[in-house]
Amino acid sequence: MSPPTQQREKIARPPTAREHAVDRLFKWVTGIFAGFTALVVALIVILITKQAMPAILKYGPGFVVSRHWDAGKGQFGILPEIVGTMVSSTIGVALAAVFGIAVAVFLTEEFIPRWLESILKNVITLLAAIPSVVYGLWGIFVVIPTIRPGCNWLHEHLGWFPLFSTPLLSVGLLPAALVLTIMILPTVTAISRDAIAAVDPLLREAAFGMGATRWETIVGVTLPTSKRGIYGSIVLGLGRALGETMALAMLVGSANVISPSLFSPADTLAALLANKFPEAASPLDLGALMYAALVLLILTLLVNMGGEWIIRRDSTGNVPGKEAASK
């Protein structure tokens, strides 16, 4: 790209005093705009903590282990939401890891022609583009009717088993976790694909040269070499799963219960905020929700920082230092 013509006419000359002043001002402005990001992160933490303060002082740590949420009686506790968040995220991440790594391997190990590879890759990328609320709608009208007969068959015949101890009426933990799987699949696939593609082809060829089959190479060489990136992708997927709101608010059932059954309605922290916040009336109500928001914030910040840290450590196990930052 050529510089604008006026620039060319002047050819070379030192900058004027005015240009120096503009330069300094511009640098300041960019610095302030960039610093705004840090300011916002600090503000989020400070403001949510401040709003949650009345509830923190009133309920203390007991808030996290109490099971009751009754705005009328002024009782608040988020244990069912924490358990629901953990369980739905764990199921979602476990399934997404299986599918995500399978797709990542399928996309990198030359199973299919290039053009088919790029189609599959784009399909997975587009999965991430569909809005969460549309997945919720799809879950209600497609996933739940599809899995309900199978789930209720399991309940009738294996109802003694705690995981199947309730029937799937409509919304519940399992459909929520399944839709969650689809939503975090692109994250897991993209990051582990990059990690697998970065494995030195010489390692792979050495394994082939020693007579290993394709899968002996994948399981014995490729996956162990790229394991750090794969773990990182799973942790970052977990970070997304914990904070995912709309699909869960629509599918999980918002029931303040702890049940061992996969088919029982449950609740998650983000869904609790989405469902209760618009109707929060009293300041204490709002304070309790802010307390829940703070717990969610801390949880996701820790998980995301962990994921970034795992990915940024390079394969030799070095903690990211100055060399990693300059890359």
Binding site: A270, A274, F277, L297, L301, V303, E308
Partner: peptide, 25 residues
């Protein structure tokens, strides 16, 4: 480095918390 780190954290921020932030401000 700080700004980059904060931007990474914001990418992982649950969207509902962005709503909570806009609500409180």
């Amino acid at each position: 480095a700080v700004v980059r780190f904060c931007a990474k954290l914001l990418t992982g921020l649950p969207s509902i918390l962005a709503g909570v932030f806009a609500y409180t401000t």
